[in-house]
Computed example of a mutant assay.
Amino acid sequence: MHIDMTPTDLAWQAEALCAQTGADFFFPEPGSSVREAKRICGLCETRPRCLEYALRNDERFGVWGGLSEKERLELRRRENR
Rank of each mutant, 00 (worst) to 15 (best):
M1G: 14
H2T: 13
H2M: 11
D4P: 14
M5E: 15
T6S: 15
T6W: 01
P7I: 01
P7R: 06
P7C: 06
P7K: 03
P7E: 06
T8E: 15
D9K: 00
D9M: 00
D9W: 01
L10Q: 09
A11R: 14
A14W: 08
E15I: 03
A16M: 06
L17Y: 07
L17W: 04
L17T: 06
C18H: 03
A19E: 10
A19L: 04
Q20H: 14
T21P: 00
T21M: 13
G22K: 03
G22E: 02
A23F: 11
D24H: 11
D24E: 13
F25A: 15
F25M: 11
F25Y: 11
F26K: 04
P28R: 06
P28Q: 08
E29C: 00
E29Q: 13
P30R: 03
P30E: 04
S33G: 05
S33I: 08
V34K: 08
V34W: 03
V34E: 14
R35N: 09
R35L: 12
A37W: 00
K38E: 11
K38Y: 03
I40K: 08
I40G: 10
C41E: 05
C41N: 07
C41H: 04
L43C: 10
C44N: 06
E45D: 14
E45L: 12
E45N: 12
E45K: 13
E45P: 10
T46L: 03
R47G: 03
R47N: 09
P48W: 06
R49E: 13
C50T: 03
C50S: 02
C50H: 01
C50N: 02
L51Q: 06
E52M: 12
Y53R: 04
Y53Q: 01
L55N: 01
R56I: 01
R56W: 02
D58E: 12
D58P: 00
E59I: 09
E59F: 00
R60C: 04
F61P: 00
F61C: 06
G62E: 01
G66N: 08
G66A: 07
G66P: 07
G66V: 09
G66E: 06
G66W: 01
L67I: 04
L67V: 06
L67T: 10
S68N: 04
E69I: 07
E69Q: 13
K70L: 12
K70M: 09
E71S: 07
E71K: 04
E71D: 10
E71N: 06
R72D: 01
R72G: 00
L73H: 13
E74I: 13
E74F: 09
L75W: 05
L75A: 13
L75S: 06
L75C: 08
L75M: 14
R76E: 14
R76C: 07
R76N: 02
R76S: 11
R77K: 15
R77S: 13
R77L: 13
R78V: 12
R78I: 08
E79A: 15
N80Y: 07
R81C: 09
